[in-house]
C-alpha cells in the first residue's frame, strides 16, 4: 500500500538534461505507464525512483517519506530489468531467496515464500532449475518473482518484455496486469510500445525529451491527445499543417470550417474519423487500398504530396487513382503545441 510522489525532479547528465521538472503522483495500487521514444528520459526516471540514479534536483517520496538520496538497497522498491538480470551462478530458488536471506528470515519461511511466489508466476516446481535452462519468458517471470517475493511497496518494470516475441509479450502483459490487480501493488511500467501502455495502464505518462507531454488515462490519451506529439505517437494519426483564415482551415485538398481564430494550425484526424467520398477534383487522389478483411486502409495523396490514411469499411468500394473528397468527422486542432479546438470526438 503505497503512494509515490515525484516533485519537480530534474536529472542532468554532464550537460544534457535527461529529465526536466517532472511531476507525478501515483496513487496506491495504480499502474502507471511511462511511454516515450528512446531518449525521452523514461528509463532515467524509473532508475531515479529505484535509486540507481540520483535526481539533480527535486524530491521523490514514497508514502510521504523522502527517498531522493536513499540508496537502492534501502528503498522499498522492486525493479524488473529489461535484460532480466538473473544471477546466472545461482539456481532459481537461490535467486529468489537471496533478498530474503539478506533480511535474515528463517530458512523455513524463505522456502515457503519462494514456493508461494513461484506458484504466483506459474513456475511452481522450477526452484532447482538453472537460469539458463529457462526460456526467455520464464526468465522474465523469475525476475518478476524475485522482486515480488520481497513485497515491495512500489514495483518498477523497465521494458521487461522488450526482448520477447510479440505473442509471449502479450501473454506476459496480461499476467502482469492480473498479478498487479490481485496484489494491488503500486506499479510503474516503462515501455516504448504504445499498445502495451494502452492495454496495461490506469494512466499513461507520455514523455518527450525529458518532459511530460500528457498524463491521462489511456482512453483520454488516445481520444484527446494534449499535443501534436502525443497525437502522432499514440496510434495512427493524420497530422495536417495549414492556416486558418476567416474560420476556415485551409490546406491544399482540404478545407474545413472551424470556430478558431486566424493563424497557423495543425489538424489531427484519426484514419477511422476521416470520411471519404468520390469527387471530381483531383486535389486528393487514392494512392493505394490495403484490404485487412474487416476493414480497409486507404492511402490518399494530397496535391502537395502529403499522404493521409483513411479507414473504409469495404476495400472493394475504392480503387487506386480515384479522386476523393475528404470530410473529417472527428478532429482536433493544435496551435503552439496546445489543443485549441476539438470536434466530433
Amino acid at each position: 500500500m503505497a503512494v509515490l510522489d515525484i516533485k519537480d525532479v530534474t536529472k542532468i547528465f554532464g550537460g544534457t538534461v535527461a529529465v526536466e521538472r517532472f511531476n507525478l503522483t501515483v496513487a496506491d495500487g495504480e499502474l502507471v505507464c511511462l511511454l516515450g521514444p528512446s531518449g525521452s528520459g523514461k528509463s532515467t526516471l524509473l532508475r531515479m525512483i529505484g535509486g540507481f540514479e540520483t535526481a539533480t534536483s527535486g524530491v521523490i517520496a514514497i508514502d510521504g517519506e523522502d527517498v531522493t538520496r536513499v540508496p537502492p538497497e534501502r528503498r522499498p522498491t522492486g525493479m524488473v530489468f529489461q535484460s532480466h538480470a538473473l544471477w546466472t551462478h545461482m539456481n532459481v530458488f537461490k535467486n529468489l531467496a537471496f533478498g530474503l536471506k539478506l533480511r535474515r528470515l528463517p530458512p523455513a519461511e524463505i522456502k515457503d515464500r519462494v514456493e508461494a511466489v513461484l506458484e504466483q508466476v506459474g513456475l511452481a516446481g522450477y526452484g532447482q532449475r538453472q537460469t539458463h535452462q529457462l526460456s526467455g519468458g520464464q526468465q522474465q517471470r523469475v525476475a518478476l518473482a524475485r522482486s515480488l517475493v520481497l513485497e515491495p511497496k512500489i514495483l518498477l518494470l523497465d521494458e521487461p518484455f522488450a526482448s520477447l516475441d510479440q505473442h509471449l509479450r502479450e501473454r506476459l502483459r496480461e499476467e502482469v496486469r492480473d498479478l498487479q490487480q490481485r496484489l494491488k501493488i503500486t506499479t510503474l511500467f516503462v515501455t516504448h510500445g504504445q499498445d502495451e501502455a494502452l492495454a496495461l495502464a490506469d494512466r499513461i505518462v507520455v514523455l518527450r525529451a525529458g518532459r511530460s507531454e500528457q498524463i491521462d488515462p489511456p482512453d483520454v490519451v488516445y481520444r484527446a491527445p494534449a499535443t501534436p506529439f502525443v497525437a502522432g505517437f499514440i496510434g495512427t494519426m493524420n497530422l495536417i499543417d495549414g492556416v486558418v483564415e476567416g474560420g476556415v482551415f485551409r490546406h491544399p485538398g482540404l478545407d474545413l470550417a472551424m470556430p478558431v481564430a486566424d493563424g497557423p494550425a495543425t489538424l489531427a484526424v484519426r484514419p477511422e474519423a476521416l470520411g471519404i467520398a468520390a469527387a471530381t477534383s483531383a486535389a486528393a487522389v487514392i494512392h493505394r487500398v490495403t484490404d485487412y478483411g474487416t476493414h480497409a486502409i486507404v492511402d490518399i495523396d494530397l496535391a502537395d504530396g502529403l499522404r493521409l490514411k483513411a479507414m473504409a469499411p469495404d476495400a472493394r468500394a475504392w480503387a487506386a487513382g480515384t479522386a476523393v473528397a475528404l470530410s473529417p468527422q472527428a478532429f482536433a486542432v493544435y496551435r503552439d503545441n496546445v489543443a485549441i479546438h476539438r470536434a466530433g470526438a
Binding site: E73, R74, M79, S83, L86, L150
Partner: peptide, 18 residues
C-alpha cells in the same frame, strides 16, 4: 560482469560490499 545483475542485487537489499 553484467552491471544490471549488480543493480538487481542492490535492489533486493545487498550493500555494495555484499
Amino acid at each position: 560482469v553484467d552491471r544490471r545483475m549488480e543493480e538487481a542485487a542492490r535492489d533486493v537489499g545487498a550493500s555494495p560490499l555484499r
